[in-house]
Design a protein around this nucleic acid. Structure first.
Lengths: 248, 248
DNA sequence: GCTTGCGTCTGACGTTACGTCAGGCTGCAG
DNA sequence: CTGCAGCCTGACGTAACGTCAGACGCAAGC
């Protein structure tokens, strides 16, 4: 049985001596023993343990949890691995979304040399929102909507965005009116039609979206940019619209 | 132009108030001004800046670097984005490798209920080595070799691993002999033949591998497990073998 | 036997990006 | 005017080590 000094083990595993000091201090990996001079001595068993620790660390487990896992005599390894798999898949998906966002941004940058910071902001927040949307409504729906968008030319996309803004301005100009006013309801209809260009939008979803516009600070901020209270008016208008539609 | 209180901005961007305090303290995002009572006041411009900061943060830039980037008056945005793209691609690839390692491990776990820690260790270190190999010799080669392995049954793979160990033991039993001894050279031949089962292995690569066995602490440790000095003997034997082969 | 020099020890403070109080103002509603 | 939520600053805590500092261990060379 070969034994290793601390620097040997460090080199073997590709970590620093300080790391091993640290692991010893917190009790995660203690040396097999000490030499007469007080030097830490490790052997094969520690090498294996360290490799396992590093595996978990690679998967970004906190050290405390690694310790807990490895101290449990009969922990459910396979369950643990499965969990890890899920976590990894999520992280990869997240990064891939970021990447497609970046690709898109770069593409835009290259085509039109000038991009304002607000365009960047929009791209980023759209990516963020998309991710939340995927969680809220499921991956499939969001992807459908994305495909629909992808088929449109960028001109058409811009038109769509512009129409959204126009509607928002429309609501903002009705801030003095109640949600059930005819003019407000007209804008509600337009909002619904506009949303349907992104994909199917049943009335139920319209209600959820209305709530989202108020409860989500980012949507609120977006709409209230056109006038304080616009988000609330929009929500109430949509609620009223849905009520009138579902029970005519 | 709307202004935001600190908690409003925090909600808007999905960060904590403390985070904004911090960003103010380090000068990364300072408020547009203060109210008479000393409250921080932000406006649209800060919202956009914060979004950009969060984008960089998402890509795990340290805050200091984000600050540096954003303070540069005419920083090359597109270059920066490209760099981010590369970085992201690398991280995704890394995670995907980890994932395939996990998949494999889980598969193994399910087939044979018992897995020793040493098997886990082997899987992990193989994944690590694979990644380095990919860097050293290129993705394509490594993938080829992997495909070759994938076509083998696990029995055959075990046989291959066992043969590798047998050869290592063979070298270990020749520790008293010089590298150019006939017996040692026989083992060198077998090592070469063994390596070729993983994929084409020209003599030049054989030399590189020989060096690796000594320079890389993990390989060294692996071979020296069979006897101290085995790695060096193996390297020297391979060198000698290659020399005799290339100039016969 | 003594110096040289590297390896190792412990202890302690530094780092990053905040979290989490604590104690004291501010601002607005009732 | 009196709560009470929101905000302020200052300070300490966290994770996973990095980075000295000062002292000891150990093998080699003179």
């Amino acid at each position: 049985m070969s034994t290793y000094s601390i620097s040997q083990l460090a080199a073997l595993a590709g970590v620093s001596v300080r790391t091993l000091h640290h692991y010893d201090a917190i009790g995660l990996l203690q040396p097999a023993g000490r030499s007469s001079g007080g030097y830490r001595l490790y052997n094969e068993h520690q090498v294996l343990q360290l490799q396992q620790i590093l595996m978990f660390r690679e998967l970004e487990y906190p050290l405390a949890q690694i310790q807990q896992i490895m101290q449990t005599p009969d922990y459910d390894l396979i369950h643990c691995l499965r969990q890890q798999q899920q976590l990894l898949a999520g992280r990869i998906a997240h990064l891939q979304r970021l990447q497609s966002m970046l690709d898109f941004t770069i593409q835009q940058q290259e085509s039109s040399a000038m991009t304002t910071s607000s365009q960047l902001f929009n791209q980023f927040s759209q990516a963020t929102l998309r991710e939340e949307a995927a969680q809220r409504w499921g991956e499939a729906e969001v992807r459908q909507s994305e495909q629909k968008m992808a088929q449109l030319s960028s001109e058409q996309q811009q038109k769509l965005a512009a129409e959204g803004e126009q509607i928002a301005r429309g609501f903002a100009q009705c801030l003095h009116l109640p949600a059930d006013a005819a003019e407000v309801q007209l804008w509600a209809v337009r909002q619904h039609q506009w949303l349907q260009q992104y994909g199917p939008c049943p009335l139920q979803r319209l209600v959820m979206l209305g709530d989202l516009y108020v409860s989500d600070a980012r949507f609120q901020a977006y709409y209230d940019r056109f006038g304080a209270g616009t988000a609330v008016l929009l929500r109430d208008a949509l609620h009223w619209y849905v009520a009138s539609q579902s029970a005519p």
